[in-house]
Amino acid sequence: MSIFAREITDDLASLVKQVDEQVGKNSSKQMKAFVVLLAEDADAAAPKLEELAKKQGIKNVPLTIFDGASGPPSYKIAKDADVTVLLWRGQTVKANHAFGKGGLDKKGTEAIIADAPKILE
């Protein structure tokens, strides 16, 4: 699962925590996930990501930063998507979710977690 985010919010932290738990539970089924914070100033963003990891006790999901708000070109992250979640299995996207600014909420997180079984081996 790939999570691209442009801002660290409480809802994002909650999503990351729940995904981290899912990855922990499903390690035998090869579930993996990573978070990419899309930032213009990676150095300034790094402490915020470290704080998230510490506060939420993230153990299984690498938290990374991409140096540029539009993200890696090949992923075609939508301009208005504050959070983009891609669920992959092999080379195929099984589900994706995108949320505009402030759009990620409890319901959105539940929908993402509900899709997690689609990418388990």
């Binding site: 442009r6 213009e40 100033d41 540029g68 708000a69 539009s70």
Partner: peptide
Amino acid sequence: DGQRRRRIP
């Protein structure tokens, strides 16, 4: 971020 100045790596 990136509205007036955008970095493209």
